[in-house]
């Protein structure tokens, strides 16, 4: 079952979604911010956008603030680790 972050209703009604799906590109761990035909991947280790296209600045700042807020961020971490136990966020291997 995908993890679908509960985002503010205003953004949800516009069509924004923040997800971790059951089958994602594994490396590096990330959450996907979806809007219509676009996806922004945000790295769960460093809060950096993984791709230059689509432009990161097109994600509304208030939505991004909500996603990286401690409560949301910790839940995204927890869910990634549950869904991808073979590639956990805090693995020693990845810190090397």
């Amino acid at each position: 079952m995908p993890f679908d972050l509960a985002i503010p209703a205003f953004f949800r009604s516009q069509g924004w979604k923040v997800k971790i799906r059951d089958r994602e590109r594994l490396e590096p761990p990330h959450a996907s911010i979806l809007f219509k035909d676009k996806t922004w991947r945000i790295g769960l280790r460093d809060k950096e956008f993984l791709d230059s296209s689509p432009r990161p600045k097109d994600v509304p700042k208030k939505l991004l603030d909500y996603v990286v807020d401690d409560e949301s961020w910790n839940e995204l971490h927890r869910q990634w680790n549950l869904m991808y136990p073979s590639n956990p966020l805090d693995s020693d291997e990845d810190e090397s």
Binding site: M1, P2, K19, R23, R25, L34, K36, T39
Partner: peptide
């Protein structure tokens, strides 16, 4: 779903990006 960005199989979702990659 998701404008062609997600393949859904019941409760399971896969990103199109992962499949194409």
């Amino acid at each position: 779903t998701d404008f062609g960005q997600t393949l859904q199989f019941g409760d399971y979702q896969a990103s199109s990006d992962a499949v194409l990659y």
